[in-house]
């Protein structure tokens, strides 16, 4: 029971998602979906803004690489199909509860410190805030520990920016797949 390597190497090494755009299903990369402003299924607009701002602070480029679309999609599938790092870090299903709690805590703590939600902070304020939350739980933060969320949100950002065929190319390292990630996530 093995797969023939040559047949597996056929096909473009894309990572496409099935998105519903204007009532029809389209296959889009996360980056294309972000550019087309595909709406989310699980996260609210406020949660999306917080996650994108956090992702962009953790790893510039994560917003355009589609971090919010990626996380949102994974939160909408069965727990057994979820590909988020949170699954491996023993976050119990439904993982959406975890993201909701953490993104809410992020905004509450940012508001406690600066009077506005995280997405509205200046880039410097965001950097300082993230540097603090990775080390200890900031004032006004209630929910899962902030260093744990820092680790997982950072992993999401790294996944969408560097965990793809495109990301490997950017680093100049060969992808060399056996089974290319061509099917829907």
């Amino acid at each position: 029971m093995t797969v023939d390597r040559r047949s597996m190497l056929k096909g473009a090494a894309l990572s496409a998602f099935a998105f519903t755009v204007g009532g029809a299903t389209s296959w889009l990369t996360l980056r294309e979906a972000y550019a087309q402003s595909v709406p989310l299924n699980v996260l609210t607009p406020t949660e999306r803004a917080a996650l994108e701002a956090l992702g962009e602070t953790l790893l510039p480029g994560a917003r355009e690489a589609g971090i919010a679309l990626y996380v949102d999609h994974q939160l909408s599938v069965d727990p057994g199909d979820c590909l988020l790092a949170a699954r491996v870090a023993n976050v119990p299903p439904p993982v959406s509860n975890f993201y909701r709690a953490c993104l809410g805590a992020l905004d509450r703590a940012a508001t406690a410190a600066h009077g506005m939600p995280f997405a509205q902070l200046s880039p410097e304020q965001r950097n300082h805030f993230v540097d603090a939350m990775r080390q200890k739980v900031p004032e006004g933060w209630t929910g899962p520990p902030s260093p744990f969320f820092y680790l997982l949100a950072r992993m999401d950002a790294v996944d969408v920016v560097y965990g793809t065929v495109e990301g490997f190319e950017r680093l100049g390292v060969p992808y060399m797949p056996h089974v290319s990630p061509t099917s829907k996530w």
């Binding site: 057994g80 988020l84 699954r87 299903p93 996944d159 990630p181």
Partner: peptide, 28 residues
């Protein structure tokens, strides 16, 4: 308990590899 994996499910991606992991709740 889980699905009938086949070699074609072993997708070369660190993101996809997580589908092969345990996902049920434990109290740790």
């Amino acid at each position: 308990l889980g699905p009938p994996w086949e070699p074609k499910d072993l997708i070369s991606s660190q993101i996809w590899s997580r589908r092969l992991k345990w996902h049920g709740a434990n109290q740790l």
